[in-house]
Computed example of a mutant assay.
Amino acid sequence: MTEFDTGLPSTRMVQNLIKEKKEVEIKLMSDDLVMGKVLWQDQHCICLVDHYDQSTLVWRQAIAYLKPKV
């Protein structure tokens, strides 16, 4: 198991999105699109919460891209 590297720019970017409570859009490799605020992240997953307070666990390997909503 690899250790979670908090020094990586991608990890820091997601941490800033968590801290600022910004809404994000995550496009999955399956072509699905999920939106919400990032609640937490670890080395394997990102947890999103939508406007219905529904949590969604997204495996990092399933992500095509993640971007903040404007």
Rank of each mutant, 00 (worst) to 15 (best):
D53F: 10
M35V: 12
Q54E: 11
D50P: 03
A64T: 04
L17P: 02
C45T: 10
Q61G: 07
M29T: 06
I63W: 03
D53R: 12
I46F: 09
I63M: 03
C47A: 14
E23G: 12
L28M: 04
L17V: 07
D50N: 15
L17W: 15
R60G: 01
V34Q: 09
D31F: 05
I26C: 07
C45E: 09
S30A: 03
C47T: 14
K19F: 11
Q61F: 10
D42I: 06
K27Q: 10
I63Q: 05
H51N: 11
H44P: 00
L28T: 02
S30I: 00
V58M: 04
L17R: 03
H44C: 05
E25W: 00
T56K: 15
E25I: 13
M35E: 15
Y65V: 01
M29H: 02
I18F: 04
H51L: 06
T56D: 12
K21D: 11
V58N: 06
A62M: 12
A62E: 14
D31G: 00
V49G: 10
K27F: 02
D42G: 08
L17C: 03
L57R: 11
I46H: 04
E25F: 01
Q54M: 08
M35C: 14
H51M: 05
Q41T: 04
Q43W: 02
M35R: 15
L48M: 05
L39D: 15
D32I: 01
E23F: 13
L48H: 05
A62Y: 09
I26D: 05
V58E: 07
Y65R: 06
K22Q: 14
I63Y: 03
A62R: 13
V34E: 08
G36N: 02
K27M: 07
R60Y: 03
K37H: 07
S55N: 11
L48D: 04
L17S: 02
L33V: 14
L28W: 00
K21S: 12
H44M: 09
K37R: 13
I63N: 05
W59N: 09
E23L: 04
H51T: 08
Q43A: 12
D50V: 02
I18L: 03
I63T: 06
C45F: 11
E20T: 07
C47V: 15
D32C: 01
D50E: 04
K27C: 01
D32E: 12
W59L: 12
S55H: 13
E23V: 06
W40P: 00
K27V: 07
M35D: 04
Q41W: 00
M35Y: 07
V24K: 08
D53K: 13
D50M: 03
V49R: 15
V58C: 08
L39S: 14
L28Q: 02
M29R: 08
H44F: 10
Q54T: 10
K27I: 04
I46C: 11
E25N: 09
L48T: 05
L57F: 11
V49M: 15
V38N: 10
Q41K: 01
C45Q: 10
I26S: 04
V38P: 12
L48P: 07
V38L: 10
E25D: 06
K27R: 11
K22A: 08
